Simulated assay, not measured.
Amino acid sequence: MKIIVTGAAGFVGSHLCEALLEREGNEVIGIDAMLRDELRVIGSRNLDAIMGHSRFVFHNENLLDINWDELLKDADIVYHLAGIPGVRNSWGDDFGHYVTNNINLTQRLLEACKGKPLKKFVYVSTSSVYGEVTGKVSEEAMPSPLSPYGVSKLTGEHLCRVYWRNEGVPIVILRYFTVYGPRQRSDMAFHRFIYQILNNQPITLYGDGTQSRDFTYVGDCAEATAAVAEASGVIGETINIGGKERASINDIIEMLEWMTGKPTQIIHAGGLVGEPMHTWADISKAERLLGYSPKISLAEGLRREVAFARKHPYLKEDSAV
Rank of each mutant, 00 (worst) to 15 (best):
V5P: 09
G7Q: 14
F11V: 00
G13M: 02
L16K: 08
E18F: 08
A19H: 10
L20H: 01
L21K: 03
L21Q: 13
E22K: 15
E27N: 04
I29S: 00
G30D: 14
I31F: 08
R36K: 12
D37H: 12
D37P: 12
E38K: 00
V41P: 06
R45G: 04
L47E: 13
A49C: 13
I50D: 14
M51F: 09
G52K: 09
H53F: 08
S54C: 09
V57D: 07
V57I: 03
N62W: 10
W68D: 02
E70V: 00
E70M: 00
L71N: 00
L71C: 02
A75T: 02
D76F: 00
V87E: 13
S90R: 03
W91M: 09
D93Y: 07
G96L: 10
H97S: 11
V99F: 12
T100K: 14
N101K: 07
N102K: 10
I103N: 11
L109W: 01
C113P: 00
L118W: 01
K120G: 03
V122H: 09
Y123R: 01
S125C: 04
S128V: 04
S128R: 08
V129C: 02
E132C: 02
E139K: 03
E140H: 04
M142F: 13
P143S: 04
S144E: 14
S144F: 12
P145N: 05
P145T: 03
P148R: 14
Y149C: 12
S152G: 08
K153P: 06
C160N: 07
V162I: 10
V162S: 05
W164A: 12
W164D: 10
R165E: 15
V169S: 06
P170F: 01
V172C: 07
I173H: 03
L174A: 07
Y176K: 05
G181H: 11
Q184Y: 06
R185Y: 08
M188C: 02
A189S: 15
H191Y: 10
Y195F: 15
Q196I: 01
N199Y: 09
I203K: 10
T204D: 13
L205W: 04
Y206S: 06
D208R: 02
G209K: 05
T216Q: 07
G219P: 04
G219C: 07
E223H: 14
T225R: 08
V228E: 04
S232N: 14
V234E: 06
V234L: 06
G236H: 07
G242C: 04
K244V: 05
R246M: 12
N250D: 15
L256D: 10
W258Q: 09
K262C: 11
H268C: 05
G270M: 09
G271N: 11
G274L: 10
E275P: 00
P276L: 03
H278N: 12
H278A: 11
W280T: 01
I283P: 01
I296W: 04
G301W: 04
R304Y: 10
R304L: 12
E305I: 03
A307P: 03
A309C: 15
A309L: 13
H312W: 14
Y314E: 15
L315S: 04
E317Y: 12
V321C: 13
